[in-house]
Structure formats: C-alpha cells, structure tokens
Design a protein around this nucleic acid. Structure first.
Ligand SMILES: [Zn+2]
Ligand SMILES: [Zn+2]
Length: 763
DNA sequence: AGCACGCCGACT
DNA sequence: GTCGGCGTGCTC
C-alpha cells in the first residue's frame, strides 16, 4: 500500500512518530508510532515501553516528528505500548536525561547505554523472592559423583550454602547454561525451590542497628575552623563551584558533617560519592550520628521505586559508590566526592565514566557545590584551573618520625634491614603495635637491578618495560616497542638484574622466623576472601590482639585503623615498577597513607621506609612530609612526556578471536585515526585560540597497536591503541568518527571496538 | 546487547 | 538418530 509521503505537519491528526533509544549496545534509534491515546503524554525524554523484536523493553523518546524518516514504511513500524510509570511522575527528569547524553558524548558511548545509568530498569530486575537449597539427594549425588560435569559447579555452589542460594544471585550471572542447569537440578530433585529470599542483607536504609555491621568508627572529626566554614558558605552562594579539600580523613569528615547540615537546613540534599563500598558504609554511619537528617546508603543500582520515593521526600543525605552519582534527587545542594583520586571512581566497563567528572557535570546542572576531598589529591584535580582550595594545616609534630633506609646498601637481599629489624624488636618488647606495609603484592612483570633499584623503562613513554621471560624481551605496554634484555644495569653497571617481587607470604615467613613469639596478623587479597571471614579479620585488627600486622593497601579500603607505634614500609619502590604513567602518583598516595598509620612523633610514632631509590621524588616527599616535592617534579615529568593532566589520553581496544586478523583491524583503526587526527588535524575552536599559548600540546599521536597481555574473556585476544594529545575535543571527534568507520567496515561480532576516554587502569 | 534461527560434533 | 554447542543476523 503506497504511503503518502507529503509532510503532514499541517494536519493535527496526522500520525506522530517517536524516535526511541533502547538500553542496549545499539547506537541507532528506532522509530515507533505514537498511538493517539498517548500523544498528549509522550514528550522528548519520556520513558516508554516498546515492543522490540520478540520482547518488550523500556526505552526513551529522544525526538518526535510527524514526518516519517526516510527508508521506513509505516507498515514496518510498531507502536509504543505504554508510557512508563503510568500514574506517577513518569520519565526522567529533563536534567538526568540531558546528563546521560552528556556522558555519552564525553565518553563516546551509545546514548542508550548511558540512559541505563540514570534509570536502571526498575521493573525488569524485580529480584526473584525464592532461593535454591540442595536436597539430601543432591548432596548424595555430589558425594557419589553422579552429577553431570556441566551442572556440577552450580550444584556445588548451592550445596555450599546451608541456607540456600538466592535465585537472584544465580541469575545475576544470567547465562542460559545456568538456567538450564537449574531446570535439570530441579528435575532431578537435587535442589529445591524454597520460598523467601535468603535472609541476610541489612536494609539499605541505615537503621540504628546498622552499627553492628562495622567495627566502631575510629574517627575523631576535627571541628573545622570558623573561617573555613565561612568561606565554604560564601562559595555556596556562587554555585556551581568546585572546592578541593585537602586534608586527612578526620579533617574532611569534620567539614563534611558541618557542611552537610548547612545544606540540609536550606532544604537541599547532599550526595556523597566514595569509591570503596565499605568506606561508604563507614561514612554513612559516621554521618548518621552527626546529623539529624536521613542517611541513605546506595551501592550499585537504583531501584526505580526507591528513587521515586526518595525524590519525593525532603532533604536527605545519599552516600554511595560511583554509580550513585546518577542517583535521582530533587534538589542537590552539595556533591562531595571523597577520595577523588580513587581509581574505583572510574567505571571499568563501557560507558567508562569517571564519577569525579560526572559529579562536575551534575553540579553544574544543579547549581550545587562540588567538593573533592582527599589526603593526597590527584594531579588532575590539582591542575583544574577554576577550583577553590581548602588545605589542612598540619603541625610538624602531628607527623611520625620517618627514617629512609637505603636498601641498595643492604647485604644479601633480606627483606628487612637491620634498622627495621631492631625497631620491630623494640616495638614488640614494649608491647606496642607494629604494621608492616607492603604496597603491592610482588608485581612480577618487571626487571630490577638488585644493586641500585633501577628498572628499565621505555625511552619515549617512560613507563617500566614489561618483562617476558619466555621470549626474553622487554615490551612497552604503551607504544609496543621491544628491546632485548639488558646485560647490565643502565644506572650502576652491575649485572644483577632480576625479576622483582616478594609476596606477603614470604614476608610473613620471615617475620615468624625473626619473632617466633609475636602474634602476627596478615591482611591482603588472599586472606580476605568472603564477607564473613573479612569481617572477622577486621574485628581482630580492631581488637588489637596482634603484635605485628602485615598488610597491603587493603588496609586503607575500610574504616580507619587506630595508629600504631611503628610502621615498616618493606618495599617502598615496588609500586614504581608498574607499567603505568601514574605509578609514582599511586605509590606516593599509598606511602602517605601508610605513614598515617603511625602515631605522631611526640607519642612515639615511627616510620621506617625501605627503598632502593632514596632520592626518588616520591621517597623524598614522603620523608619530608612535603607533598610539594612530589607534585612539582611529577607535573614536570607529565608535561615532558605528554601525559595527563597536561595532555589527554584515549585508550582503544580491539578484541577478537583471531590474533592476526584482530591485529589487522587494529592497524586499520590506527590508520583511520592517523588520517583524521595526525595527517589532517581538524582542530577545535578552543584549541585554535590557545594554539600559540602552548604549541607543544597540539600534536596528537597515535601509539600502537600493542598486543594485550593475557587472554580476555572467552578466549578473546585484544590489541590496544593509545591516542595522546592536547586537544581533547579534536581527539574525541576523531575517535568517534573513526569508530563509526570501523563499525561500518567490520559489522557483526567478529571484532569488538571499545573506547576509554581518560583511562585509569590500562590493560 | 539479547535472542532466535541454523548448521556441525559426540553421545543415547 | 538427537542434543546442544555457538556463529550470524535482526531488532522500528
Ligand atoms: Zn643498578
Ligand atoms: Zn613506549
């Protein structure tokens, strides 16, 4: 049947079409008929339920028209089934809708995908209310081995839990094989469906009983100075504004509690973002005690119902991890990103947003005050042009005494220097407590000089080479260049180069050997598996039923620990050998935190820092309690090498099954990028203006492709490309256009192309 | 991304 | 013979 293609705009009764984006990894929009009954209720930004293929799903209207887009026939179109949330305020708030688009643009991700962030499918994830329990036949089948191998893992998983495994937990890893395994096991009567979810999970809204969850907070908030609060109040009049609050946790919490109270009294809400879940829980408890307003802890995923309820009730505090930055709140007066340098604020999956940056987008929309809190701010935040700063003044005697021990002068490669051994002995003898800090579980990927601590680095990228034992080669993870193994050390000429790394187990053995009578507790990834055992371990930490605590950075990811008399930093340098341009920055942060585990010098606090690189700016800064030593040198290095925050990075990955074909595709992407960014650079307007100001920052380079280390999910192999340059807008445009080209050139699922703007963890 | 359709190996 | 792996194409 021929369709009248004339514009129908003049006819009010002409059919109306809606462009709808769906929460799938699909870039394109789909056109639907708007049924006459819904015309008055369907606007741009409206959430709608639409038939899609064989299912229905919830999408969002991004455009309305009375003209049918070319290439489509009315008979092909389906109609919008309904408008979401029939009676309530349906749809996203316009602000959140726009925010999702801004995120999509900033991070080069499909808009539909980003829409998921602001409105996770509320009804779709209605959690099943039952759980599965293994029957006695099931346990028998396990013992006799009569369960087919394919279904064995699931049966074991269920049998392991006496109280059963909630159906939601299984379906969260929703794979068809799991579904079928469930059917099979149920049919065999090896498992049983029991009504009611497994009872656990305290309410997400903190009640008074929630205090049993975490150990007593070890935090004495420092009351902020009057001038500081006055200044912050002034800044609240000038929103949107950003403030960096640079100080230790107790100092930040003091300000946070006061500031939150002020904002809440004005009838606006407070949103607090913290990278680590447990730290967020702890903070929720602290604030619950400090204010009279309701505190909601929000980790991962907003249920639509909750969000709407919360959107309606009066001012409140919402605390959550990175995804909570999208939490719908009626009126936000303050967003506080605490621990802004935490890499957990970066989403590891597409869309790779950074909560710290999204917080600024949101604060600008909401005319809110945005606080970045940190005890060791990132270089990114420190280099923001328009940011206010509040810094804690620390008296010299608030620090412990620090001694650097030059390990390149120590004999034999024993993990502890004579100084540290003696200090440990004294501490144990005085019945004081000691913490031995390992800043990274032996990273085995690098080569190091045993005499002077030198590590071979790529000449153009300055990151540590990755050492491949099998091929006896060094490879740069950034640019892909390769080198053969050096015979001698590039710094001292010695020939004692060997792979680095000493795990916590080895250290523990050594401590037990040296101090057979001491009570030793170890905290790291290996010992902290599972929620229950972790809690038990941390109760031990707080109960102080140990003499020597051996720990990694896991020590900082929960509630704070009461400071001790001695902190020994065993291999201060090991973090420097990670092939990442932020290696020094991370090391600095960890060491600053480790130093804070010791009491102030007047109360006998002492830190012994063992390093083979005592002149390194990280070590010098830590030893002098002067972060400026670190920052000044580090920012220069970043400028010289063109790394963030001076220049920008976009990290691209091509993955596929066939290694060689994937490489060809990756190489083609590099060529496309070259065409668009390097050969004929299209500079953005802002960059053209600043062209004369900083000519060095204008060059855009494309590095790679570099083979990914290891094998990805399901045997897939990856190749990485890095785009580096000063003109962010031009880089983003070029990457977006080249991505479109690549997806057109390679349709289907042979290859997956992914984009990470401002990558944090590469590899 | 889901989800179904469709073609080849190993097990009843 | 079937069951079930996952390669391929489509979704207004
Ligand atoms: Zn050397
Ligand atoms: Zn390199």
């Amino acid at each position: 049947m021929p369709i009248d293609s004339r514009p129908r705009t003049d006819y009010p009764n002409a059919p109306m079409f809606a462009d709808v984006i769906v929460p799938r990894h699909l870039a394109k929009t789909f056109t639907y008929l708007v049924p006459p009954s819904l015309v008055s209720r369907v606007g741009v930004g409206q959430r709608v339920v639409v038939p899609f293929g064989r299912t229905t799903l919830e999408g969002a209207v991004i455009g309305l028209t009375r003209d049918l887009p070319g290439g489509l026939n009315v008979s092909q179109l389906k109609a919008i089934a309904s408008v979401s949330d029939g009676d309530g305020l349906s749809g996203f708030s316009p602000g959140m809708f726009e925010l999702s688009r801004q995120v999509a643009e900033e991070y080069i991700a499909p808009w539909g995908q980003c829409l998921r962030l602001v409105a996770p499918p509320a009804r779709a994830v209605a959690q099943p209310k039952w759980s599965y329990v293994a029957t006695s036949q099931g346990r028998l089948a396990l013992e006799q081995g009569s369960c087919p191998e394919v279904h064995l893992p699931l049966l074991q998983r269920i049998a392991r839990r006496k109280k059963g495994l909630s159906a939601g937990t299984i379906q969260s890893s929703r794979r068809s094989s799991d579904r079928q395994a469930l059917l099979f096991l149920e049919a065999q009567q090896w498992i049983l469906r029991s009504e009611g979810a497994v009872s656990n999970r305290p309410s997400r809204i903190l009640g008074s009983k929630a205090g049993t969850e975490l150990s007593t907070p070890v935090c004495v908030p420092i009351a902020p100075a009057v001038e500081v609060m006055q200044r912050l109040q002034m800044l609240m009049q000038a929103c949107p504004t950003r403030v960096l609050i640079d100080g230790v946790l107790d100092y930040r919490v003091g300000i946070m509690a006061r500031l939150a109270q002020l904002v809440l009294e004005q009838g606006r809400s407070v949103l607090i973002i913290i990278g680590e879940v447990v730290r967020a829980q702890w903070m929720a408890q602290v604030l619950q005690e400090a204010t009279t307003y309701p505190v909601t802890l929000q980790s991962r995923g907003v249920s639509g119902v909750d969000a709407e309820l919360n959107g309606k009730v009066a001012p409140q505090i919402v605390i959550g991890t990175r995804s909570a930055i999208f939490y719908p709140l009626r009126s936000i007066g303050l967003i506080w990103v605490d621990g802004e340098e935490d890499s957990a604020l970066k989403e590891p999956q597409e869309p790779h947003y950074h909560a710290r940056e999204v917080a600024w987008m949101r604060a600008q929309r909401e005319f809110a005050l945005l606080v970045y809190g940190s005890a060791h701010p990132s270089l990114e935040v420190r280099s923001v042009g328009e940011i206010e700063r509040v810094a804690q003044c620390r008296e010299p005697d608030s620090f412990p005494q620090i001694e650097l021990v030059d390990m390149s002068r120590e004999y034999g490669g024993a993990p502890f220097s004579a100084t540290l051994t003696a200090a440990l002995r004294a501490t144990v003898a005085q019945q004081d407590r000691a913490i031995l800090f390992l800043n990274r579980r032996g990273y085995a990927g690098a080569l190091v000089c045993r005499d002077c601590g030198w590590v071979p680095r790529c000449a153009s990228c300055a990151v540590a080479f990755v050492y491949y034992r099998e091929s006896a080669r060094l490879v740069c993870r950034y640019c892909g260049c390769r080198e053969s193994l050096p015979e001698i050390c590039g710094a001292c000429g010695a020939s004692r180069l060997s792979p680095i790394g000493e795990g916590t187990e080895r250290i523990e053995q050594e401590v037990r050997r040296l101090f057979p009578g001491a009570r030793i507790l170890r905290i790291d990834r290996d010992t902290t598996r599972g929620v229950v055992s972790t809690r038990r371990l941390w109760q031990q930490v707080h109960s102080r039923t140990w003499d020597i605590l051996i720990g990694t950075q896991a020590l900082f990811q929960r509630e704070p620990i009461l400071p001790v008399g001695l902190v020994g930093i065993v291999h201060a340098d090991s973090g420097l050998h990670v092939p990442d341009f932020r290696a020094a920055e991370r090391t600095h942060q960890l060491l600053v935190d480790a130093v804070d585990l010791a009491r102030p010098a007047p109360s006998g606090g002492r830190v012994i820092l063992q390093t083979a690189l005592p002149m390194h700016h990280v070590m010098q800064a830590v030893a002098a309690h002067d972060p400026a030593i670190f920052y000044d040198e580090e920012i220069q290095a970043r400028r010289m090498l063109g790394y963030p925050p001076v220049q920008h990075l976009i990290y691209l990955t091509v993955s596929g099954k066939d290694r060689r074909l994937t490489e060809v595709a990756a190489q083609r992407w590099v060529n496309e990028l070259h065409k668009m960014l390097v050969a004929a650079p299209s500079r953005s307007a802002s960059a053209q203006q600043s062209l004369s100001a900083d000519p060095q920052s204008q060059g855009i380079v494309v590095l790679g492709p570099v083979a990914a280390t290891g094998v990805g999910s399901r045997g897939t192999l990856g190749w990485h490309i890095m785009v580096k340059g000063g003109d962010r807008t031009a880089m983003r445009d070029g990457v977006r256009r080249s991505l479109e080209t690549m997806e057109r050139a390679y349709p289907g699922r042979t290859f997956k192309f992914s984009v990470d703007v401002d990558p944090v963890d590469m590899g």
